[in-house]
Amino acid sequence: MNAMQEKLFLELRQNKEEIEQSLANKNEKDWLTDILKDELGDIEVALRKLKEGNFGQCEISGELLPEKLLTMIPTLRSKRDSDFLKYFWKKSIPLS
């Protein structure tokens, strides 16, 4: 694991703990519960990829995703996901 990946690993692990705590403290299911569960699943996949050594690799094509983009959104899974960002992101996305 390189320095950037190690930093992301620590951040993802902390986010995972915070989401798990939020879910544990919820008394009833609401609109946020499903969003938190989805995010938790994405974080768990990213953590597994970091441990296995294939973090940042597109799940569809196998090509590497832009490192700058991964530092902003470490739960990206594919090039296709990053292509959708241009429709929702308010700022320009530096890919190089």
Rank of each mutant, 00 (worst) to 15 (best):
V45P: 00
F84M: 08
Q57V: 10
K16H: 09
N25H: 12
M4H: 06
K37Y: 11
R80C: 03
L65Q: 06
N54T: 03
E11F: 07
E28A: 11
E67F: 06
E11W: 03
K16E: 14
E20N: 12
W89N: 04
L12Y: 00
E44V: 01
Q5W: 05
P74F: 02
F88W: 10
K49E: 06
L69W: 01
E67N: 06
L32Q: 13
Q5H: 09
R80D: 08
G41D: 08
L40D: 13
L23M: 11
K7C: 04
I43E: 00
N2T: 14
K68T: 07
K51A: 02
P66E: 05
F88N: 04
L40K: 10
T75F: 04
I60K: 03
D30E: 11
S22G: 11
Q57C: 08
L70N: 02
A24Y: 06
F9T: 01
R48Y: 12
N27V: 07
N15C: 13
L40Q: 12
I93S: 00
L47H: 05
K49T: 00
C58G: 03
L32W: 10
K79Y: 02
E59T: 15
F55I: 00
N27F: 10
L50P: 04
E18D: 14
E17W: 10
F88R: 10
F55T: 00
L50Q: 12
D42H: 15
E52H: 01
G56Y: 09
S82A: 09
T33C: 09
F9L: 13
I43W: 09
Q21K: 13
M72D: 04
Q14M: 15
S92V: 01
E44D: 10
K51I: 07
K86I: 04
P66R: 00
K90T: 12
L69I: 04
Q57K: 13
Q57Y: 11
S61G: 06
M4C: 02
D81R: 10
L10E: 06
L50G: 05
A24F: 14
K51G: 02
K90C: 02
K51P: 00
I35A: 14
S78T: 15
L10K: 13
T75Y: 06
K49H: 14
A46L: 15
L23A: 05
L85T: 05
L85M: 05
D42S: 11
K37Q: 15
F84H: 11
K86R: 13
N25P: 03
L23N: 05
M1F: 11
L69Y: 00
W31P: 02
K51R: 14
I93M: 03
E28D: 08
E6L: 12
M1N: 07
L23G: 01
L76C: 13
M72C: 09
P74E: 02
Q57M: 08
F9E: 09
E39N: 13
D34N: 11
D42G: 08
F84L: 15
T71P: 03
D83R: 10
D81Q: 15
E39V: 09
L85C: 04
Q57A: 06
S92Q: 06
K86H: 06
I93N: 00
R77K: 15
K68Y: 03
L47E: 04
K7M: 10
N15T: 13
Q14G: 09
L64R: 12
L70I: 02
I73E: 00
S82M: 12
E52C: 01
M1E: 13
R77Q: 12
S96N: 08
T71M: 13
Q21L: 15
Q57E: 12
E17Y: 07
S82C: 01
E11M: 12
I43N: 04
E67P: 07
L95C: 02
